[in-house]
Design a protein around this nucleic acid. Sequence first.
DNA 1: ATCCATATACTCGTAAACGGATATACGATT
DNA 2: AATCGTATATCCGTTTACGAGTATATGGAT
Lengths: 215, 215
Amino acid sequence: MARKRPSNPLALAVLASLYERPMHPYEMASMMRSRGKDASIKLNYGSLYTVVETLERRGLIAPHETQREGRRPERTVYGLTDAGRIMLIDWLSELISTPVKEYTQFEAALSFLGVLPPDEVATLLREREGHLDVEIRQLRAVLEMTVERQIPRLFTVEGEYWLMLREAERAWVSQLAGEIERGELASLDLWRELHAQIAAGQPISYPEGGVIEDD
Amino acid sequence: MARKRPSNPLALAVLASLYERPMHPYEMASMMRSRGKDASIKLNYGSLYTVVETLERRGLIAPHETQREGRRPERTVYGLTDAGRIMLIDWLSELISTPVKEYTQFEAALSFLGVLPPDEVATLLREREGHLDVEIRQLRAVLEMTVERQIPRLFTVEGEYWLMLREAERAWVSQLAGEIERGELASLDLWRELHAQIAAGQPISYPEGGVIEDD
DNA sequence: ATCCATATACTCGTAAACGGATATACGATT
DNA sequence: AATCGTATATCCGTTTACGAGTATATGGAT
């Protein structure tokens, strides 16, 4: 055996849904939506059906029965296979125990800060800080509501995780913006110079061998 | 005009590379590697060439010249168009000013914690903490080296950002693991019960309308 | 009684991502 | 002199991801 693991987290969601009980794809989607799981897992129908197909091909799920109500489109109810149950546990365990490098768009943008002039960057960072503030307030409100409604924390950890990440980011962004504004960033002069050079269409000199992150 | 923006951050990297000077794709890749940008932007050749093709189709970059040295494969040097230059500035600005929801695998896994028994989860979280520790130490070492070598911070902010995210995550993971271990998590009993039910193949009752994160 | 928005349930075509495969050059090694 | 690993440079076929489209059913408002 030892089949290759799917890479799309949506596949994990499918396996986890079927771990509860057999379902047809559309039902999985509705369930995730009603439980708010679509906030932590990107869900769209196009991908859902391809993912289900893939899981079936790999023998991790299997069609249980094919129902038809009235003249609505046919629907296929899937169930977990033994291999699928094992895969779910394994995969989930590994995702929790072992961090994987994920590439965020903001990180990408940060690697090219030099393209913009420092003052502009400071402004943009402050704007981000504002947006983050709003998001943080909103999620805080939602989480407080779940406490009131006595929804167990087990079902809201993703939200807490996300909240703490955003809070950390806000603090960092604010700090960086401040350093630029107050001229405390060590390389500010170089930055301005560099930017002027590039804007003038001149070839620039760049310190080769920058950050070497070994994953 | 107002062309659609590409979604792959690699496209941003291509634009940013060409902002410096005209280059052929392979050269962009080598440059990113030598500058360690491949740590913040997922880079593989297959995608690079498709991205370049797409950018050309959208008129954001244009072939400058086609060189050929000896009998090596032909190489096409691309340059930024005016539209490309504008796109780069716009895109970069927006990426900095406006946070976008990104889905991480860990977050996905957290939404299905209930599938595993609590004690198991505590162990896995501790393991993650260990891995994070290692990563953090490594990146710290690298960043300290860049300070010694007097590499301007402008070129290492991505690294600092990443480091702070990991540190925040480590603290959170450790905290959660502790709460589970010490039985402080409010819903621990429910969790065990739920898990027993599922393991026994019984249908479970789930509090509908859980976390509603509005993006 | 009819209309319209929403829910149900999927299908299909296109676009993007990726992992090799390919083919040459070059320097070091046996 | 032949070999072997590595760098140069891109291409190609397959797999995935996605958005838009389709068609029926249902419940409430007009």
